[in-house]
Design a protein around this nucleic acid. Structure first.
Ligand SMILES: [Zn+2]
Ligand SMILES: [Zn+2]
Ligand SMILES: [Zn+2]
Ligand SMILES: [Zn+2]
Lengths: 146, 146
DNA sequence: ATTATAAATAGAAATGTTTTCTATTTATAA
DNA sequence: TTATAAATAGAAAACATTTCTATTTATAAT
């Protein structure tokens, strides 16, 4: 797996540093979306000196390179998720436990058609995200508790 | 139009105050999405005393009530847009001039099917937004300039 | 009209996340 | 090894947004 991460960094023309690899490893172990601060806390148990700005920078580089994706959260705080599904798809996120599931649909074609057709505009990107409660959380009475 | 805005506030069980009406009027005159700060600047030319927190609060109330919608911006700053289209739809936003256009498609049905079916989850809300350059801006050589 | 009430607001201050900056360290290629 | 650019730490700044308290205002009931 580590080789895989080396390769990911190589492909992004990023130097293979212990901290970048650690961020990738931490993200790869997570089943849920995480904040820079949370990553930082885990990093601090692995490195004596590790700055929060470094974590922010690494996460942004990985996101920029398409390796991880940003989560759009109602609080507008930053969250990231390392999704191994390389096909174009979107996410269902649980507002209670932060689990992320793939939603294998994409309206890109229809969007492109409408925008190019009616609006004569140019599409740069699109955001599709579904917010809700996952199976586990929706089975609880009060999904935010216990 | 003012009556219309009175009614909007009434329906939300909000008192009809000059400042709430002014925010609605300012938003109604805008063709583009705007920030709280920008609204505040316009408010200051109409009111001697007007606090930025008031603008934030009013915008949030209107958004909460479904009267205006939040724009998801890459910078993650807050932007709002007052859309008169009452049908469920989504937005195409121009990253250059901030114009907003309706995109009359919605994947809600397919989303619901997938999430309820495969994931056994519960959908609370969904975000669909298309980012790009509008007709005018995409016709310019460098869309971000001049 | 007056008054009582809860709601709305101003203004200052706090909050808290994210970014910037500079000196130092490190990965990598020659 | 060494030279070089890239990466990083740590402190500080920036900045948008929120919280707080005292004051004002809209509204409904006299
Ligand atoms: Zn859940
Ligand atoms: Zn898509
Ligand atoms: Zn435009
Ligand atoms: Zn929809």
């Amino acid at each position: 797996m580590s080789d895989n991460h080396d390769l990911i960094l190589k492909n992004l023309n990023l130097k293979i540093t212990p901290k970048r690899l650690a961020v990738l490893n931490i993200l790869a172990d997570e089943l849920v979306f995480v904040s820079p601060e949370e990553i930082w806390r885990k990093m601090k148990s692995r490195f004596k000196n590790i700055g929060l700005p470094t974590v922010y920078r690494i996460l942004e580089e990985l996101c920029e390179g398409g390796v991880i994706s940003k989560i759009i959260h109602p609080t507008r705080q930053l969250y990231y998720y390392y999704c191994k599904n390389l096909n174009h798809h979107h996410h269902f996120i649980c507002m209670s436990c932060r689990r992320v599931e793939d939603v294998n649909l994409c309206a890109a074609k229809e969007i492109e058609k409408q925008v190019a057709g009616n609006l004569k505009g140019k599409v740069l990107s699109h955001i599709i995200q579904v917010n809700g409660f996952c199976k586990t959380c929706s089975q609880k009475k009060a999904p935010d508790e216990s």
